[in-house]
Amino acid sequence: MIKALGNFIAIIKGSLLTTRHFMVNMWFHTLKLLRIKTKRKGAVTIQYPEEKREIASRHRSLHRLLKRDDGKPRCVACMLCVTVCPSECIFVEATEDPDPEIQKSPSSFIIDLSRCCFCGFCVEACPEDAIRMDTGQIEFAEYTRDRLIYDLEKLTE
């Protein structure tokens, strides 16, 4: 009996809590509607496309391939990123570079972003600092999967 009463009180307390939230938030919403400026807002939501959150400096976003001074990709097709990628979404094909100092360069470099989990391992693994995930681009959703397959050209843009 006492337990039932306790439950009942808990139930009432619960609805009082939600009621309080409702009332307080509603109050601030109303103030806002009346264009009265307050410090507190009625909701914690960030209205995404209009309002954007600042991206942290250590964020990971769309990949890019860095270029040498002459515009060729810095990547030497060592395939360490291919090796480390947990999603197996990088594909690199190596070719002989005409410059004997460079020797090896990628003839194709593909990242299938529809599989990428943005772990950043590829960036960590790269011995040449040739790949980075610092473009700040986080909105690259597409309507078809094949447009998410980024090749050398798209990655060096």
Binding site: V76, A77, C78, L80, Q103, K104, P127, E128
Partner: peptide, 9 residues
Amino acid sequence: IDCPICDKA
């Protein structure tokens, strides 16, 4: 130590 481009690596 250019292991990244060395076939022996």
